[in-house]
Write a protein that binds this DNA or RNA. Structure first.
Length: 283
DNA sequence: AGCACTTCCTGATAGC
DNA sequence: TGCTATCAGGAAGTGC
């Protein structure tokens, strides 16, 4: 699932390879993907900045317009053009013959390059708004503070305080905390040795601190590995991430706990999502 | 506030 | 070239 590290990795790639290029033409093959505004506003604009807000990515153009996006489960932003490094190992499994049948929006750039918005399940969206109006996009406006940027321990404490909601469900609530999704919530709770089913308010001061640090730790680890290619995440060059080879708890159902505590990873459903934890050492 | 349920969609998987 | 049913999942929406 593309979460904070995956979206940050994509954003960095867009900044590196697409910024500075001007849009010559946009081909919208599946109109419903563009939930707001008109991509024609971007034509003639030069991409000057890529930004990320939680799991959403925004590109700003020098004509005062921006395109905001949310790739949800299966969206991809993939660039192909003259300045793409030769060493890029484009995923054959997930980026096959661009444009492919999942390429719903294609940006043709003045450098001769192309920027593809691909999305198998079509859950993702694009919104074209004035750059000044980006902060008013509902998802961005209501987004909670982000780990690695703005979410202090005090704020985190405040968010958990008095809430009866299961701690994992709370971690994944984008209005409370921005950018944490299922994979990193599972891994952070494992690292902090906290049972995902516990009410948020039941955590001790020490546990809150441990969890806060664990979230930072797993997100940084995810970033280091260029994100996790689960479903069909790829970076802005179409390359796979590697964090999937370093999951701590996510997807480990039936496997023995690496702490050798004698426990085995269980899978349950919380808030409608697969939840993996070691019953023995996550208390 | 909190929770359950539905919707969007398609590829993967299980069962026959 | 097997067919069909089931399922996952981010976020929004609805209803209790």
């Amino acid at each position: 699932m593309p979460e904070l590290p995956e979206n940050e990795t994509i954003k960095r790639g867009l900044q590196k390879y697409v910024a500075g290029h001007k849009v010559q033409r946009v081909d919208v093959r599946l109109p419903k993907i563009v939930k707001e505004g008109d991509v024609k506003k971007l034509v003639g604009g030069k991409m000057v900045r890529a930004r990320r807000f939680g799991k959403s990515i925004v590109m700003d153009f020098d004509n005062g317009w921006s395109v905001a996006s949310h790739i949800k489960l299966t969206g991809q932003w993939v660039y192909d053009g003259p300045n793409k490094p030769k060493r890029a190992k484009v995923s054959e499994e997930y980026v096959d013959g661009l444009p492919n049948k999942y390429s719903h929006v294609i940006f043709y750039l003045d450098c001769g390059g192309k920027l593809y918005y691909n999305d198998v399940r079509q859950f993702g969206w694009l919104r074209v708004v004035k750059t000044d109006d980006v902060p008013n996009i509902k998802f961005i406006k209501e987004l909670g503070p982000e780990p690695l940027d703005g979410l202090t321990l005090d704020k985190f404490r405040e968010i958990l305080k008095g809430r009866n909601t299961k701690v994992k469900v709370l971690l994944m609530d984008q209005k409370k905390i921005g950018g944490v999704g299922n994979i990193y919530a599972n891994d952070a709770l494992f690292l902090a040795r906290i049972d995902p089913r516990r009410p948020a308010k039941s955590l001790s001061g020490r546990e809150v601190e441990k969890l806060y640090k664990a979230i930072d730790e797993v997100l940084k680890r995810g970033l280091k590995y260029g994100g996790a290619t689960e479903l069909n995440y790829v970076n802005a060059l179409g390359e796979e991430g590697a964090y999937q080879d370093h999951f701590l708890a996510y997807g480990k159902e039936g496997q023995p706990c690496p702490r050798n505590c004698g426990g085995t990873f269980k899978k349950i459903t919380l808030g409608g999502r697969g939840t993996y934890f070691c019953e023995h050492c996550q208390k």
